[in-house]
Amino acid sequence: SEFQINEQVLASWSDSRFYPAKVTAVNKDGTYTVKFYDGVVQTVKHIHVKA
């Protein structure tokens, strides 16, 4: 599913667990740039983002 900029989502971290994050960019290659609550910004594949 498509997510929008500033949408609150759950994004997987390197430990494969999902954490609350905010979408900061929707990228043309189908990835999302997300910002976790601790301030870390990461680009993740769409399969690693869920509502």
Rank of each mutant, 00 (worst) to 15 (best):
D29T: 00
D15R: 00
V26M: 06
V34N: 00
V26R: 04
I5N: 04
Q8M: 14
K45Y: 11
K45A: 13
V49P: 06
A25Y: 05
F36G: 02
E7C: 06
V9A: 02
E2I: 13
Q42P: 03
A25Q: 09
S16H: 13
V40I: 12
T24N: 05
S16Y: 08
N27W: 06
A51M: 08
V40M: 13
F18H: 05
V49R: 11
E7D: 15
P20R: 06
E2F: 13
N27L: 06
Y19I: 09
V40G: 08
Y19K: 08
R17A: 11
V40Q: 14
T33C: 04
K35E: 15
K50Y: 11
H46N: 13
S12C: 14
K22H: 11
N6C: 13
G30S: 01
F3G: 03
E7K: 03
D29I: 03
V34P: 00
V44L: 10
V41M: 07
D38S: 12
T31C: 04
P20W: 05
K45N: 11
R17H: 14
S16M: 11
A25K: 09
T43L: 08
V44D: 02
T43D: 11
V23G: 01
S16D: 13
S14C: 14
A25W: 06
A21Y: 04
V23S: 01
I47P: 09
A25P: 00
K28L: 09
T33V: 12
Y37W: 14
H46V: 12
Q4C: 11
T33E: 10
W13G: 11
T31I: 02
A25T: 07
Q42S: 11
H48L: 07
I5Y: 06
D15L: 01
A11L: 05
Y37S: 12
A25C: 07
E7R: 02
K28A: 13
V26A: 06
K50N: 07
V9M: 02
A11K: 01
N27I: 02
F18M: 08
K50L: 15
L10S: 06
N27E: 05
K45M: 14
H48V: 07
Q42W: 12
V41C: 07
S12G: 10
T31L: 02
Y32G: 02
G39F: 04
A51I: 09
H48C: 15
P20T: 06
N27G: 08
V9E: 03
F18R: 01
F18T: 00
E2M: 15
T24W: 04
V41S: 10
L10D: 04
V41P: 04
A25F: 08
K28R: 10
V23M: 01
G30C: 06
E7Q: 15
V23N: 01
A51H: 14
Q8T: 14
D38F: 15
H46A: 15
V44M: 06
V49H: 06
V9Y: 01
V40H: 13
A11R: 00
D38C: 15
I5R: 04
I5T: 05
K28D: 13
V40E: 10
T31W: 07
F18I: 03
G30K: 06
Q8D: 14
F3K: 01
D29Y: 01
V49Y: 05
V34D: 00
I47Y: 09
F18Y: 12
G39A: 04
S14K: 13
V34Y: 02
H48A: 09
A11D: 00
T33D: 11
H46E: 12
Q4T: 10
V40S: 15
H46W: 12
Q42F: 11
V26H: 07
T43K: 11
L10G: 01
S1A: 13
K22T: 15
I5L: 10
Q8Y: 13
